[in-house]
Amino acid sequence: MPFIEESDLLELHKDVDKAQIINERLLDQIKIKNKELRKSKIQRNVLAGVTGLFLIGTLAIFSFSAGVSQSGSLESQNTNNLLVSIDSLDAIKARIDNLKEQNDELSLVKEFYLAKKFLEKEKIYSVQVKSFVDNNVTLASDALTNTLFVKTNPFYSYSLGNFETLDEARSFRFQLVKMGFKDAFVASYQDGKRLAIEDPY
């Protein structure tokens, strides 16, 4: 096993901590968006229910008042009904506009989640530092979100870092080699499976 200088180990821990902080922030943003999405859906459903009840109530009042009211002239009844109808239409139009705005906001949140799912399907690069016969490894902590512990028949591989580009992974591999991990190499992964071992240069 190669020897690691304490300063190099501290730098490596700092890089891991930075990546963890970024991942935690992204998870917090996702949780906030989920809450907003749920709240908007509930508000939209409640508003739709209230609007439906309002329309049913308005129709019931109109039909009731038309059947019961026998006093007064036909003209005054039509004028009163017309005034109530205009007020009701304005309220319904305002609610429809509000629902359209909420629908636009929900579309933006939906696009965010679709982009996130797309990124999860993308190819990433990581630097493999060790292979093990079994998966009983204390290094594979759930707290380290930028590590990969993948079954690559017949072994389990332990990789550090999650990089979008091959150049970033190669740079990280170079730092690990300088620290003593002479056998470290870059591999590409997708959906939690290793695709290929990449050229180190």
Score class of each variant (00 low, 15 high):
Y113V: 04
E111T: 13
L119F: 08
S73G: 10
F163A: 03
F149G: 02
E120A: 09
L139M: 09
R173A: 02
L166A: 03
Y156Q: 08
Y113L: 11
G161I: 04
K117V: 04
N98P: 07
T138D: 09
D167W: 02
V129P: 09
S171H: 04
R95S: 01
R173L: 01
F112A: 07
L166R: 01
L74F: 09
G161D: 04
D134N: 14
K151E: 15
L148T: 09
K121T: 03
K130W: 15
S141I: 11
L108A: 11
N136K: 13
N81R: 15
K130R: 15
I86Y: 13
E120I: 02
K123P: 00
D104V: 03
A115K: 15
T165P: 04
S126W: 02
L108Y: 03
E120P: 05
S141D: 13
L166N: 02
A143D: 10
F172I: 04
T79G: 12
R95Y: 10
L106C: 08
S76N: 07
K93E: 01
E122R: 14
V150K: 11
S85A: 12
N78Q: 08
L176A: 06
T165L: 02
N80I: 12
F155A: 05
S85M: 10
L144S: 11
R95E: 04
T165M: 05
T79R: 06
Q77S: 03
A140L: 07
T145F: 02
R95L: 05
A143L: 08
R170Q: 10
E122P: 09
N103D: 13
D167S: 07
Q102F: 04
E111P: 11
L139Y: 01
V84Q: 14
I124P: 03
L82F: 05
E111W: 00
R170S: 00
N153D: 14
F149V: 10
N162I: 05
E105L: 11
F155L: 13
S159G: 09
Q128L: 01
Y158G: 06
D97T: 13
G72C: 13
A143R: 14
R95T: 05
Q128F: 08
L160E: 00
N135G: 15
S85G: 04
Q102G: 04
F112L: 00
K116M: 11
V129A: 11
R173M: 02
L119W: 08
K110G: 05
Q175I: 03
F112M: 03
E101L: 07
G72Y: 09
F112Q: 00
L89I: 05
Y158T: 08
A94K: 09
T138H: 09
K123T: 10
I124E: 02
D90I: 09
N78M: 06
S141C: 09
D97H: 15
N153W: 13
L82R: 12
L99R: 06
L74T: 07
S126Q: 02
Y158H: 10
G161T: 05
S85H: 07
R170G: 01
N162K: 07
K100W: 06
Q128H: 10
A115L: 15
T165F: 01
Y125G: 07
V109R: 00
A169I: 03
N81T: 03
K93F: 05
P154C: 06
L144A: 08
A169D: 00
N80Q: 15
L139Q: 12
E101S: 07
F163T: 01
A169Y: 01
Y156P: 06
N81G: 14
R95P: 02
E105Y: 02
T79L: 12
D142T: 12
R95Q: 00
D142F: 09
E168K: 12
K151D: 13
